[in-house]
Design a protein around this nucleic acid. Structure first.
Lengths: 153, 153
DNA sequence: GGCACAGTGTTTGTATGCGAACAATCTCCG
DNA sequence: CGGAGATTGTTCGCATACAAACACTGTGCC
């Protein structure tokens, strides 16, 4: 990458060999901003659940009953994080927990009827959230973007 | 909304008209996972600052002194968030603050010499973080990805 | 001049997210 | 059998994130 010797706004002619840095074009910053926008869209369409809570509930509905830590792995949350998420889903009455009789350490989680109903009622909104998040892109671009994004995980 | 009579795990014959939902292919979930991976790479290469703290420091070095809220806008953090970030940067001695004489409400923030030195010393690592984050993609794919990502912000 | 309104920073409350340490339990292997 | 080591869930501490309410200051407009 070439070194520009521009006098940055508010800043400093760069010395020869100095490497510039522009926050606004960094992947990390763009990922954070895209996530922020997505979460705002999510909160607008599914106000009663956070994206994280919905993910956990959806995974339970999709993959069937799971131990708490297993659910965490399926939803990319560590043990400490999934605990809080599950506690809140239980408090809302959307998820039920019972000790696994075969392994006293494990807690088996399953959606309650209310949980499954809430999930079913939200699937349409969830798809709309995805659509709105990707709305700035054409259909072909969406596919390209998702293909590339999945390789960065 | 349909009650599926599916037999759980992974499972499930869907009824006609029912809309499926697979967490693992949703943009939001992929964005979160990509961000997680990026943050892990960041923490490995710049252990003394979080990505957020580095972003704020970098923006101050790049754009010059700013009021606290203005810095928050430049770094996509709301007033409550930027306050905590700035407090921690000040505690580390990387950022200095003074009341703006022309506007008693404002706090003008600027990097200290130590802050600028820390930034200069980390720019190389920051570029390496970007490179490692995007490493799974080819050069052409990286450009495509960033072009699409920027449109989702 | 004075007042409505906007902007700035602070605080509180809630919700991720992760590292680290911990007790209880299970598994495996000698 | 029995102990080393792994797994599971919990707790603590720290660091984003954002909504909402607040006090204070500045601006514009009558």
């Amino acid at each position: 990458m070439e070194i520009s010797d521009k006098t940055a706004p508010g800043g400093a002619a760069r010395e020869a060999g100095e490497i510039g840095y522009t926050l606004d074009t960094q992947v990390g910053f763009l990922l954070r901003r895209a996530t922020q926008r997505h979460l705002a869209i999510f909160a607008g369409r599914i106000p009663d659940l956070t994206a994280t809570q919905f993910a956990a509930l959806a995974k339970l509905c999709e993959a069937g009953p799971q131990s708490q830590n297993a659910l965490g792995r399926l939803t990319a949350m560590d043990a400490a994080t999934i605990k809080g998420v599950v506690d809140r889903l239980r408090a809302k009455g959307l998820v039920a927990a019972r000790r696994d009789p075969d392994d006293q350490r494990r807690i088996t989680l399953a959606p309650t009827p209310e949980g499954r109903a809430a999930f079913d009622a939200s699937v349409g909104a969830a798809h709309a959230i995805t659509a709105e998040t990707l709305a700035p892109l054409t259909e072909a671009e969406r596919k390209t973007f998702l293909d590339l994004l999945i390789r960065l995980t």
